[in-house]
Design a protein around this nucleic acid. Structure first.
Lengths: 215, 215
DNA sequence: CACTAACTGAACCCGCCGGTTCAATATGAA
DNA sequence: TTCATATTGAACCGGCGGGTTCAGTTAGTG
């Protein structure tokens, strides 16, 4: 059997190909969808042989799962960071909310974020369990964080008394809802100006409905 | 409507198999997605031989296109009819808007409507042109109709002066946005009570932001 | 240097399924 | 009845692509 040495520490012979495969897989899946994606192409783009792919991930399906969960966590981290700008709203609440809404909208239009949403939705029939993971990492988590911030604002008397969960849900809907339609499900590229305007009108309606002092 | 009994006995001949194929195709596509859908299964479920399918629609792709456009028009008709309830708002604006919002939410959760959205989105990589058709028939058309109603309401002094297009977009976002998250992309069935509550809070924020007389 | 484990490339197997062919049959119209 | 057309079942082809095998190579380890 194994001697006293750490035989089991998996000292990867080469650089970690695993990450390269995951990255390549996300790109290929995002480009062609699950069914149309060729494992061969993933391997090539990762600079790796096909058997190596099957060595790290037993089959196409588990590779897909691993790819999406990894991407979900990455996207989540980005969005949470964006939301943290609302920690200290400062004097001009409207201005900071405008900025946050704009950044959120931008983040939603980001290629990785869009591809992730698309892949999850598209493959919902075959991988229903992925919804929980991806949505949990993105929508739900973001909504909770937003609700936290809104609760603080209410407590500080800057928003009228309300259910922060509902308010957060609605604010996010106002920001992201029009995006899908306007961008033709991601087909059309939205300009920064469009995003600004969209964010501003979303915040405007939100504040009209929720601000304690509707100035 | 009483002719269904005659179908039981091998109706070999020129009955309108075309519609049967389209219906069956929508179901099968909706169940398995485009790539996983078997033409054989579509034929069987339509009570038809496989060559007959290829006789009416040259190949799987054109069959898919025909299926989706047909479904899109059907869904559109339903939604437009729903919206017409807002033609005569009556005394209690909030009550009628609540009802319309609820019906719209219900319609969005409808199996056919959900499947249509899903199929379009899922296959956007392979059939980018379908977005225009489907979205044109659903989101865009509905938004326009809603904007018309809101413009009337503004003119009648019941809403504050505003851009009816933006207002319509936002109202629809408030109603449909939370649906996707809450229903886990259609995985979870929402109760009627949930839909009612959702519609009411959507209308509430909308009216707080847009009503001329915020009572 | 020897040993082991990961990696490679290319060929290979095999099931799946879109699409076709064809002879037989049913239908509807003239 | 007769002809044209739509339909049927069943078999068949052919490509595609997931997954495997294997002999050979490379790279860390001692």
């Amino acid at each position: 059997m194994a001697s006293a040495a750490a035989v089991r520490t998996a000292p990867r012979g080469r650089i970690d190909k695993r990450q390269a495969i995951l990255d390549a897989a996300f790109d290929v899946f995002a480009e062609h969808g699950y069914a149309q994606a060729l494992v061969q192409e993933i391997a090539e783009r990762a600079g790796v042989a096909k058997p190596t792919v099957y060595n790290h991930f037993t089959d196409k399906e588990t590779l897909f799962r691993a790819t999406l969960t990894a991407a979900a966590h990455a996207v989540m981290d980005g969005n949470i960071a964006t939301l943290d700008r609302m920690r200290s709203p400062g004097e001009d609440l409207r201005a900071t909310m405008n900025e946050v809404a704009y950044q959120l909208a931008r983040s939603c239009c980001d290629r990785r974020s869009r591809s992730l949403r698309w892949l999850t939705y598209a493959q919902v029939a075959r991988f229903p369990d992925l919804i929980e993971i991806v949505q949990g990492c993105t929508s739900v988590r973001i909504a909770e964080a937003m609700a936290d911030r809104l609760a603080r604002l209410t407590l500080a008397g800057r928003l009228r008394p309300c259910d922060p969960a509902v308010a957060a849900e609605q604010l996010l809907a106002l920001v992201t809802g029009p995006l899908e339609t306007r961008s033709r499900l991601g087909t059309r590229k939205l300009t920064a100006a469009e995003l600004r305007a969209l964010a501003e009108s979303a915040v405007d309606t939100f504040l009209r409905a929720y601000a304690a002092d509707p100035r």
